[in-house]
């Protein structure tokens, strides 16, 4: 990894003309968002006659990834939300010139002395579950309440009308399954048919949708304070219940339906979200987005499996998510759709 250090230092020197003697050290790749290569590093320099040191994160486009996204989507989300007080890292530089690090990348503040919970642990937050759960759902409510135009999120973002936002997302993820499935997927296909035959009522508003708001995608400190909401690669405009359903998906934290993400009870979580967002959770819309999100998950895991199988990316996390997460989402969807199907026939 250290071979990247002088190249990053050269880049920072170009971006920070007032700095001199820039040194980059401790470049270390970390797991953090499977759609980008993520590196932790420390930059030190002289500025105004004083030494400065800053911990940074660099996110570089991979050759192939779990999720195909544009890096500027994520960077712009950080730029939109950082001034609002929502805990996100400060975005610093977005670079699309391949001459610096071979692939596009962006640089942002590193949030130090924090950890992320694991989605593969029944108790990812231990004694802090209640405190973190309250913040988790409150922050999501604030994301839903934000005015996408006012905070600058909508710039360069494809607009969508409330009555068709469901269709845009379903079309997108169905296409991923069409293109990437390595074997027929009866449960996914049944889910797609059900979702098309039972479209949700239009959302009362179009909000910022994080797209991957869940256990494991935020950092918290030793006192149980959420310090950074990360991994905005799949953010878009849409129905705010899409995020609610994804955050409550059974995959996160061992399929605990009543305690999504291994945090607080589902009823309490939704009450907090409603209070923070000023919106009501329509159970009919929520059910549609819950089924959609388990399907979206399947699409992501199916795509990851193809990347690994074809050798485009041999990161073990792609193989793991294709095995384990496909298994969970197939079971979740089969149980749910079997119930709905039998209810509809009686």
């Amino acid at each position: 990894m250290e071979e990247l250090a002088p190249r990053i230092a050269a880049y920072l020197a170009q971006r920070m003309p007032a700095a001199s003697n820039i040194e980059v050290s401790g470049v270390s790749r970390i797991h953090g968002g499977a759609s980008r290569e993520t590196f932790r590093l420390r930059a030190s320099w002289q500025e105004g006659g004083k030494p400065v040191s800053r911990a940074l994160i660099l996110r570089r486009d991979p050759v192939a990834s779990l999720i195909e996204t544009e890096r500027d989507l994520e960077y712009n989300a950080y730029r939109a939300f950082h001034p609002t007080g929502l805990p996100v890292p400060e975005p610093l530089y977005l670079e699309t010139d391949l001459s610096w690090l071979d692939r596009p990348f962006f640089v942002m503040e590193q949030i130090e002395n924090c950890q992320a919970g694991s989605a593969f642990n029944a108790e990812p937050y231990g004694a802090h579950a209640q405190k973190i759960g309250h913040q988790f759902w409150s922050h999501l409510g604030h994301i839903a309440a934000a005015d996408p135009d006012k905070i600058g999120f909508s710039a360069n973002m494809e607009p969508v009308a409330p009555e068709v936002c469901w269709k845009r997302e379903l079309d997108k993820w169905e296409q991923v399954i069409d293109e990437d499935e390595l074997t027929p997927q009866p449960v996914a296909r049944a889910a797609i048919r059900w979702l098309r035959r039972n479209p949700p009522p239009p959302s009362p508003k179009i909000s910022v949708v994080h797209g991957d708001y869940r256990t494991g995608n935020f950092l918290f400190d030793g006192e149980g304070n959420i310090r950074a909401i990360l991994d905005w690669e799949m953010c878009h405009l849409g129905d705010p219940l899409e995020d609610v359903a994804w955050a409550a998906d059974p995959l996160w934290a061992y399929e605990q339906l009543d305690r999504p993400g291994g945090m607080i009870h589902r009823d309490e979580a939704f009450r907090i979200w409603e209070e923070a967002s000023g919106l009501k959770i329509d159970p009919v819309r929520l059910r549609w987005w819950e089924i959609f999100n388990s399907l979206k998950g399947l699409a992501i895991w199916i795509s990851a499996g193809k990347e690994y199988q074809e050798g485009a990316n041999r990161d073990p996390v792609l193989g793991f998510s294709s095995w384990y997460c496909t298994d969970v989402h197939n079971r979740v969807l089969a149980r749910r759709l079997a119930e709905i199907s039998k209810e509809a026939r009686t």
């Binding site: 990894m1 270390s28 790749r29 970390i30 797991h31 932790r40 593969f120 990161d315 073990p316 996390v317 193989g319 793991f320 095995w323 384990y324």
Partner: peptide
Amino acid sequence: AEYSVGNVSIMGLM
């Protein structure tokens, strides 16, 4: 390397 530790853990689970 933290990334290597993570990979080894995932490989173990698999």
